[in-house]
Amino acid sequence: MQLFSRIFLAAALVSTPLATQAFAQDARPAAATSAKTFINFAAASMKNALDEVDAAYAAKSGNKVTASYAASSALAKQLEQGAPADVFISADTAWMDYAIKNKSVNPATRVDLLGNSIVLIAPKDSKINHVDIKQGFDLAKLAGDGKVTTGDVKAVPVGKYAKAALEKLGAWQAVEPKMAMAENVRAALALVSRGEAVLGIVYSTDAKVDPGVKIVGTFPADSHPPIIYPVAATATAKDGTADYLSFLKSSAAKATFEKYGFSYLIKPTT
């Protein structure tokens, strides 16, 4: 009996580490699966800055953010049609209001996060170097036989801001026939960068990330409605989305957004 007890005890002592190891191996996949992936529908102009912010959030939290970039108008329509997303960041307040009206986002989570400005750009090798953008400036004459591009003025935020500014400055009527509408601001940026448009109106943040263009003028802030980027969780956002939204409002996110030229409209959290 004593011999049997000793054998049983020895077996127990040997098997205990193996059992513990097996338990740990079983636990690791469970921990891994606790990480979440958030889907962010974001205005095309945010790509460079938001990619960096999302990478920092992933490193800090262990969660992942997959961003889908397009014109705010297109994203709002996709949300309305039931496209899966957790966060919506629009380049204007109108499309966020549209999403709220259609119950695509949770209005209680909305924050007007960022600001921007619009600029006139030309290809980097253009002979146009400086344009004094003021009342009565002749954009049509400046463009000559070429095209001026921006986002679709009927829907895309940058195009709406551009048209408002050109109308207020008295330049819209003459230049309208020369306007080439793009599906989003990055598409307009590419047309200028490739030399397919002699001039373009984009956000200052876009111009700064494309070495193929140069800024030749800045539109006065009072020539168009304030450029505001609101952010909100969608109506179908998964649990934990609030943590990601909190990071967007943090000092770390503020520093990154400002590095890319956005203005930060709220007091950041620590």
Rank of each mutant, 00 (worst) to 15 (best):
D97V: 08
P84K: 15
L79E: 04
H130N: 14
A83E: 13
P123D: 09
D125T: 12
L139I: 14
I118H: 02
Q81S: 12
I89Q: 15
A91F: 03
D145K: 07
V131N: 10
A76F: 08
L113K: 06
N106F: 03
T150M: 12
D125V: 06
L142K: 02
A71N: 13
P123A: 03
N129C: 03
G82W: 09
A122S: 02
A94Y: 14
S72P: 11
A94E: 15
D138P: 03
P84E: 08
K101N: 07
K77Q: 15
G136Y: 14
K141N: 15
S72E: 11
K134L: 01
S73N: 14
L75S: 09
K124F: 00
G82S: 11
P123S: 03
G82R: 05
N129Q: 12
I121T: 11
P84N: 09
I121Y: 06
T150L: 09
F88I: 02
A91W: 01
A108F: 11
G151H: 07
S73P: 04
Q78Y: 14
D92Q: 11
I100V: 15
I89Y: 08
R110F: 10
I128D: 06
K127W: 01
Y98L: 00
E80W: 03
A122C: 04
A143M: 06
P107I: 05
I128P: 10
D92H: 11
D125H: 12
S117Y: 00
F137I: 08
A99G: 02
V87A: 11
H130Y: 15
T149R: 09
I89K: 04
I128M: 11
Y98R: 02
Y98N: 07
A122V: 01
P123T: 04
Q135D: 08
E80N: 11
A91K: 06
D145Q: 12
G151K: 06
D86K: 07
D132E: 08
S90R: 09
S72N: 14
K124C: 00
G146H: 07
L113D: 01
V131S: 09
K147N: 06
D92P: 13
P84F: 15
D112M: 03
D97N: 14
L113A: 01
D132I: 00
L113C: 02
